[in-house]
Design a protein around this nucleic acid. Structure first.
Lengths: 143, 143
DNA sequence: TACTACTATGATAATCATTTTCAATTGGAG
DNA sequence: CTCCAATTGAAAATGATTATCATAGTAGTA
């Protein structure tokens, strides 16, 4: 699926008349080989390790492109930082966030999503995306 | 309920050994007489209209206190601004947000909340709060 | 391969929301 | 009334993100 995402990004790049560059490839590799919920700074650090001459602005610009191309999605957890997570075609999931240690657990629940649709319909909304985050104390921190 | 919230805030203030000031009262009044989902800037404008000598920093500081006291809650919609909404004791609700016109519709659904609890339990989480936002197109914009 | 027309990059300055600093002021308990 | 900690306003500082601009690189095309 790393391959699939690379292809998806390259297709996007060429469809838009943009260019494939050494920096973008490095940043893309770093992003794809990272765990989820990566902040821009986290990614910048990883990129720096591979190639110290790449600037902060380029990392920002690349992440925006990743989001536009559909291989990533911005997430905001309320601290001042924008994070990005991997996004596979049509996939979406929600988060359980520990308020003590910051651990993030993903989950997916069809029943909830059906109910969301119902609620939206009740108000005449057509849902495009959604965001659901449950904040609390994780099992480790409860001990 | 405006009274109840004022009392709640004043109780909080005195319990913490803080002081009741002219500025805080004005800001509290403006907040309580506003509609929901107010940005700091929105509130600052309202406050300015009543008393032009009140500074931006004081509005920020007051909103933090409102949140701490439990009469307000921070919300983040992903644009760079922090908003605050009114919060009644134990109450919480979720949002439908129109991506075209920005309209915000609140809703509450017990069934979804029960399912959230179930999911959390499955992962050993104890939920403290949650946030759910459905983004899409509202009935007006669909016409 | 050389030419051309854009696009991309890195460094730095700029911006925006939010916080902090600090000297001056002000509640409120005693 | 007095005293001290809390509060305030203005301005500077901060942190994340974006824009600017001169230079460099990419990819068609001849």
């Amino acid at each position: 699926m790393k391959r699939a995402k690379k292809k998806q990004f390259h297709d996007f790049i060429s469809a838009k008349g943009l260019k494939s560059t050494r920096q973008r490839e490095i940043i893309l590799d770093c992003f794809l080989s990272s765990d989820r919920h990566l902040s821009t700074e986290d990614l910048y650090m990883k990129v720096r390790a591979k190639n110290p001459s790449i600037g902060y602005a380029t990392v920002y610009r690349s992440l925006k492109l990743f989001a536009e191309s559909g291989i990533a999605r911005e997430i905001h957890f309320g601290d001042g930082q924008t994070r990005y997570e991997h996004l596979s075609e049509g996939e979406h999931h929600d988060h359980l966030i520990c308020t003590r240690c910051g651990a993030v657990q993903e989950f997916k629940n069809e029943a909830i999503e059906r109910l969301q649709q119902e609620v939206a319909e009740h108000f005449g909304f057509k849902v495009e995306t959604h965001k659901m985050e449950l904040y609390g104390v994780c099992s480790k921190c409860r001990k």
